[in-house]
Design a protein around this nucleic acid. Sequence first.
DNA 1: TTGATTTAAGGTTAATAATGGTTAAAGGCA
DNA 2: TGCCTTTAACCATTATTAACCTTAAATCAA
Lengths: 231, 231
Amino acid sequence: MATKVLYVEDELFLGKIVQESLESRGFEVQMVDDGAKVMASFDSFLPDICLLDVMLPNRNGYELGADIRQRFPNLPIIFLTAKTQTEDVLKGFTSGGNDYIRKPFSMEELIARIHNLLNLSGQNPGETGSEQNGIIHLGKYEFDLRKYELRFEAQIRKLSHREAELLKILADHRNFTVERKEIMLQIWGDDSFFNSRNLDVYITRLRDYLREDERVQIITLKGVGYQFIVD
Amino acid sequence: MATKVLYVEDELFLGKIVQESLESRGFEVQMVDDGAKVMASFDSFLPDICLLDVMLPNRNGYELGADIRQRFPNLPIIFLTAKTQTEDVLKGFTSGGNDYIRKPFSMEELIARIHNLLNLSGQNPGETGSEQNGIIHLGKYEFDLRKYELRFEAQIRKLSHREAELLKILADHRNFTVERKEIMLQIWGDDSFFNSRNLDVYITRLRDYLREDERVQIITLKGVGYQFIVD
DNA sequence: TTGATTTAAGGTTAATAATGGTTAAAGGCA
DNA sequence: TGCCTTTAACCATTATTAACCTTAAATCAA
């Protein structure tokens, strides 16, 4: 699911540009041009982060920020403003803002700061895939990346480090091809020794662990690599 | 205990002013003027936050930031720099920085941003958090850094020095990987003796102490190190 | 062209080596 | 002495290597 951005901005021209730019990077953006309308849109939109312009008609951006902070103590808020006085920046932080960006700003910087607050890795901006809280769903299985647990119904199987690394790589490429070489490099840092049948051993184990759900399979592409199929 | 700031800056004149200004507000500041000396001062000083100037003799500030991030995944880092290009800001974030301030900056803004990162006022999503007044919250446990106490409901367990050191290192890296080698170096100053199973003994003890809450666990990454998982 | 044969790649399983876990006893130091 | 810390002995788990088996692609002969 795409990351949802609530963007409060009254300069419509600037707003459109920023909105499109964010959308082109995979964010879902709802723009609101009036401070009085903001709180209403929360319950329907449920944003992951807020961008608030400070100079608004009807409603002061700082007040708005404080209200949002009150209702959603953990929602990241970034203030955007043409004001350059230190005093304004301070107001931003004391109103509960998590960052403060001066206009004009570059889109790249805005996105970097959004990522920073959302703890998104620099890789795939809006896209978080079927992974939430470090849990990947694979057919009837759940794979907990942090705890190295592979769960199936009530059973919990602890994976070793190598097993988990391999499964992670396969899952990251699910329904696409991963080259043997790439796996070897990523796990063992070396794809040279042909005598080592190490990877095969772990593939065998994972197949064993995953055989409860036949919609999850590891397919061999001989001479190339593997394809991890998950329906 | 005062908040400890490690401040890396080669312009001594500016550095002095900032240092005094921070100290006058109750921070404890260690200033280092050479990138090459930074890592050495970590073990003795144990800062709560880092301010890094980007332009340094000997060592690039971004590299330094990346190294620090690797060793202390939860330590807030702020880059300070005269560079104004967006590209530099992006580099700062991709090197693991948590904020980026352009010179010249006002002391008030710097302090607001430090507070913001340390959760000294208000909430701060996705940030290091959970440590206040030397107390780290680990699931249902509280770990008092100063008293070396691990508390769970009404029980209080006094930790020994080694136990506390180890738990502190794990907690600083919670939800990230810590290498065995690093732990050994930090506690025993030596990772060479393979015959000593000292670290294992303490890991066993901590696991024992922490088993009341199964959401807190120490996972072994064989051949690599540990991962301290806290939900 | 087509089916048999060769050959390279991968699969499986077991044995071995490396690393970590556990427990208890021996040292050290206030 | 009494509490930590270190050492040691032994056990458990995980990673690697090795041996042997299977399969699929490639080659070759008729």
